[in-house]
Structure formats: C-alpha cells, structure tokens
Amino acid sequence: MSDARVPIADASAVRRSYRLRAFFRLPLPSLVILSVVVIAALFAPYLTPHDLDSFDLSASMTPPFWVEGGSSEHILGTDNLGRDIFTRLLYGARVSLLVGFLAVGIAGTVGTILGLVAGYFGGLADSIIMSIVDIQMSVPAILLALILAAAIGPGLGTVIIVITIIYWTFYARLARSEVLSVRARDFVALAQVAGCPSRRILFKHILPNILNSIIILATVEFGAVIIFEATLSFLGLGVQPPTPAWGSMLADGRTYIATAWWISVFPGAAIMLTVLSINLLGDWMRDRWDPKRRQV
C-alpha cells in the first residue's frame, strides 16, 4: 500500500494519490468497448458502405475477409441471404441499447418509486407492494415472458414491456430496504418535525441518499437485460425481421453452424463483449461507491 508512506499532515497529497489510483483502476477496456458499441448504434449508417436492407444472393455465406474465399467488401462475411454481417451488427447494437436503456429506465423508475413508498409509509401500501413483488419473483421470468409475448404478440414494444414487468421488482426490493435504514436517521425526523410534506421528504431527502445503490443495480441489470432481450429475440419472440437484433442474428446462424460459423459467432461475441464490459464497469462502481457490497 503506497498511501502508508504519505505523511498524514499532507491531506491534499493523500487525496491526490487516492484520486490517481482510482483513475488508474478505471476499467478502461470496458469503457472503450462500450463507447464503440454506443458509436456503432448512433452512427450505424455512416460506418458501413452497405445498405441495411441490401442483400445479394450471389454473395451469400461469404466468409470473413481473412478466411479463404472472403472478400474485403464484406469484412465479417455475409449471411444466408447475402446480407453484410458487419452492417447488421452495427444496426443490431441499436436494438440492444434501446431495449437496455428503456427497460432499465422504466423498470428502475417504477420500482424505485414503489419501493420508496413501501419503505417510507409501511403499513398497507408496504404489504400490498411487497406481496406483489414476492409473488412475481416466484414465477419463472422466462415463462412469464413467453406467456406475455404470446398474448401481446412479438415485437420491440413487447420486449420492453415484458422486461419492465420482470425487472421492476429488484429495484422495489432494494429501494425499500435502503429507505428503511435511511428513514431511521435524524435528518428525516427533523424534516418531519419541520413540517416537510412526505413527497418532499421522499424525493429531496431520502432519494438522493439511496440513488447510488440504485444506479449500481441499474448498471449490473443492464447486462442481464441485454442477454434477456437476446434470448427473446433468439426464440423469435423479440424484434421481428428484417430489423436486425443480435439474438435473432444468432438464431439465423443456428441452421448454418456447420457450414458458416461466422453468422452466429460474431453476434454472440458482440453480446458477450458488451455484457462483459458492463459487468466489469458495474463491479468497479460497486467497489468504488458501495464498499458494503464489495466482493471478496
């Protein structure tokens, strides 16, 4: 440990060395990969010479450029319809990120508000909300998703609704338990004595104190949501063709696993790298801001 050698009197030096260390522990590879994914999603049309909808049956199942028979025109090869895989990967990032942000955002907001209410007011509201959470957590998520997708019909909207319905419970539980500990602190009692309305106490006094944990959970869940979306798309219950999603690209490649490995390897690698980066970032955030839950 280097900070043992820093003189205690020199507080600014301690702070500087701490900040420096924290900076170097930043999961840089993760940030780079995530930036690439975001850029791919935002600027997909400008990053590839190919049109999303263009296909060329005469060039179907062209291997990547470094494999024999590949061409530099399709650097990651083409699928069974001769569509450029690199182009579809770029556009596929849009689906993953859109579903991730929307589902995590909605589920996080709804779950946090309900958890705040349950934890702060207790009583009947608490019993009702937490019973719903308990019941829902005892139903297998993928089955709930299957029934809902069968009922509403597959599509982007369905995926977001399904994931929201499944994931809000995690935020509600976390928010509730955090509120229970914050509520017991003096500043909340003081605010109550001062006649502060409940809504103001909840959102101005308690929420800022638990926001750290919520954001960390959201980061960790983001990766899980991307995998869940890919699973639904893989089963054909997610975004419908011809819109490319990483999960449905994998499903397309499944039939050709023996002859054209590249159709399924690249989308899977994209999912893995993205989720891996998010998980590492989440671990880092937890270590940094939430030492209570730090992993051994």
Binding site: F234, S264, G268, I271, V275, L276
Partner: peptide
C-alpha cells in the same frame, strides 16, 4: 459465465 448467453 455471467456475460455469455447460454444459447451461444
């Protein structure tokens, strides 16, 4: 293990 979808 946490980052790879089972079906992949």
């Amino acid at each position: 293990g946490q980052s790879m979808p089972a079906f992949w």
